[in-house]
Design a binder for these strands. Sequence first.
DNA 1: TCTGCTGTTCCTAA
DNA 2: CTTAGGAACAGCAG
Length: 274
Amino acid sequence: MPELPEVETVRRGLEKEVVGLPIRGIEATYPRMVLTGFEQLQKTLQGQTITGISRRGKYLIFEIGEHWRLISHLRMEGKYRLAVLDEPLRKHDHLSIKFDDKQLIYSDVRKFGTWELILTDQLVSYFLQKKIGPEPTYEAFDEEIFREKLKKSTKKIKPYLLEQSLVTGLGNIYVDEALWYSKIHPETRANLLDDRSVHELHDAIIELLQKAVRLGGSSIRTYSALGTTGKMQDELQVYGKAETPCSRCGTKIQKIKVGGRGTHFCPTCQIKIG
DNA sequence: TCTGCTGTTCCTAA
DNA sequence: CTTAGGAACAGCAG
């Protein structure tokens, strides 16, 4: 499910459903996905109450009591859903948190998603170490700093944005969208972007992700789970639109490969420089 | 059956 | 430092 808007939508759903509930037990059919160890997680969280759900970039953070934070990353296909207590786990369900009268199930076909239990004290250093950049808001995402970083790099802009270090939250869908809005070719080297382009890109990222959050994210492959009823997929301009006309100029949207990822762009609006 | 594709991230090697 | 490529895993389309 995972770019920032989808993760934020899941966060809001979880917040409504599980905050304030004491954890009665945790079950795993795939304990290996708990990188910090399933047994310790089970022992530590038994009886503790979920006090909040927060988010940093694409990471969900379960706040558990004062001292513990459970960091959940959905990667490509992780999903949460609520179920009655006696519902058995299905094929791709890996973990379940049991409450008094319901359970929260984590399901993930590709098993890429992870859970990590850390002390609250370690939260800041966790994200520092992963080099997670600022949140995509006007307050946190400073255009000057963005411009200076871009100026010092010859990386292609698309893969660079996917690193999460310039700004966090973009994935393969929204990065293509943001580059289309700011009329930048995805293979443009970062240091070749002029100030005007950088400005447009900066604002496009913020506006696009904020709009996607407002619309509840994009639901591309969906079934009943928290955060899967978004409307943003109807607003996409290039992602998944290969061979259809660009809404700005009518040219057919092209699909190429950049940094190993499928990449959609308008060859007329997004001219390659350099 | 085989290939290539998929909303992510991390690691290695050149 | 940069990039490319592959790995983790499973399913789907052609």
